[in-house]
Computed example of a mutant assay.
Amino acid sequence: MDLSKAFKVFNEDGDGYISTRELQAVLGKLGLSGGSEIDRVEKIILSFNLNLDGRVDFFEFKDMMRSVLV
């Protein structure tokens, strides 16, 4: 899987970070029930946001994908 392409799907505005809103939008498009609940999306962001800036950068995204794919 090309993670840089996957990251671009999540990073809709192209700023290099996945925001809560962007993650919620993609999860919703995928039909995942948790995507509609902002509290759950915020918890996902927080669990992978190592530098605590409230967003997921590419390196944090890689860790997030590794945990999902394992």
Rank of each mutant, 00 (worst) to 15 (best):
I44H: 12
V56I: 14
N51L: 12
L23I: 05
M64W: 00
D63I: 07
E12P: 00
D57R: 05
V70Q: 04
E60L: 03
D63K: 09
K8L: 05
K62H: 02
S67D: 03
S67F: 04
K8R: 07
R40K: 15
M65Y: 01
L50V: 10
I44F: 08
L27Q: 07
S33P: 10
S4W: 08
M1A: 11
I45S: 11
K43Q: 15
V56K: 06
L27R: 05
L30Y: 10
L50G: 13
K43D: 12
I44K: 12
G16M: 03
K62L: 03
I18H: 06
Q24D: 14
G54N: 11
R66W: 04
R40H: 15
I44M: 15
L27D: 07
S67W: 06
L69N: 01
F58K: 03
F10T: 00
S19H: 10
I45R: 09
V41D: 14
Y17W: 12
T20D: 11
G31V: 10
F10H: 02
D15Q: 03
G28K: 12
G14W: 05
D63W: 05
V56R: 08
G35V: 12
Q24Y: 11
F58S: 01
F61S: 00
L30M: 13
G54F: 11
L50A: 13
M65D: 01
E22W: 11
F48S: 02
E42I: 15
L69S: 02
K29E: 11
V9L: 02
D39A: 15
F10L: 01
E22L: 14
G16V: 04
A25E: 14
G28P: 06
V9G: 00
V26S: 07
K5G: 04
L32W: 09
R55W: 11
D53N: 14
K29I: 12
I44A: 12
R40E: 15
V9Y: 01
G16H: 01
L52K: 14
S4N: 13
R21H: 13
M64Y: 00
V70K: 03
